[in-house]
Write a protein that binds this DNA or RNA. Structure first.
Length: 187
DNA sequence: GTTCCGATGTACT
DNA sequence: GTACATCGGAACG
């Protein structure tokens, strides 16, 4: 099995890109790990920030593929997405969990927590661990401070997305099978 | 292990 | 005013 280039993965529809990003290594200033959990969002999806069309907040989602869309959630936390799908503007993949591999001590300091299992197991947690804030909104994910290295295809778990009220039944949450670093179990 | 709830910014009705 | 792609701590079992 060959490994697709990053550009090829991010050109795909959100559901495909979300699956193929599992296993990829994501770093911010050298700190990060393997992506083990993602969710797909499309502009025709009532749960997506893009559903109502472009606004100042979601403008990056409608721009070039491969940039990061970072937004604040519940007034407290940040969430990191990667814009995808060259044929459907407004598509993105939410990065929900990482298996920490690089800069673990720095992540522990930022999180104020020793337990590696909980450093990046959730969208808000991983942004805190990697130092991702709204300042990075719109940055290309293949340019500093970001690095994203694709990996060969992995075995994928599928489930419903987390924390939604609308389109809650759509099975667009994806996990790396067997990972101990998921934000919550798949069923 | 589980459930409940407060914190707090921004977009939208 | 209400909803929200969340988290951590308290209370309980």
């Amino acid at each position: 099995m060959t490994t697709d280039t990053l550009a090829a993965i991010l050109a795909e529809p959100a559901e495909i890109a979300a699956r193929r990003l599992l296993g990829a290594r994501l770093l911010v200033d050298g700190v990060g790990g393997r992506i083990v959990e993602t969710e797909a969002y499309t502009p025709d999806d009532p749960a997506s920030h893009a559903f109502r069309g472009p606004t100042p907040r979601n403008a990056v989602m409608f721009g070039p593929v491969g940039r990061v869309y970072v937004y604040r959630i519940y007034g407290l936390h940040w969430c990191l997405n990667i814009v995808c799908d060259t044929s459907m503007p407004g598509s993105a993949v939410l990065i929900r969990a990482l298996e920490p591999t690089d800069g673990i001590d720095e992540m522990r300091e930022r999180r104020g927590l020793a337990d590696v299992r909980k450093l990046c197991s959730g969208p808000g947690r991983l942004c805190q661990a990697l130092g991702v804030t709204g300042d990075l909104n719109g940055t290309p994910v293949d340019h500093p401070p970001f690095q994203l290295e694709p990996a060969p295809p992995v075995k994928v778990l599928t489930g419903t997305r987390i924390g939604l009220t609308r389109a809650a039944e759509t099975p667009w949450r994806f996990g790396l099978a067997g990972s101990r670093f998921l934000s919550s179990p798949f069923r």
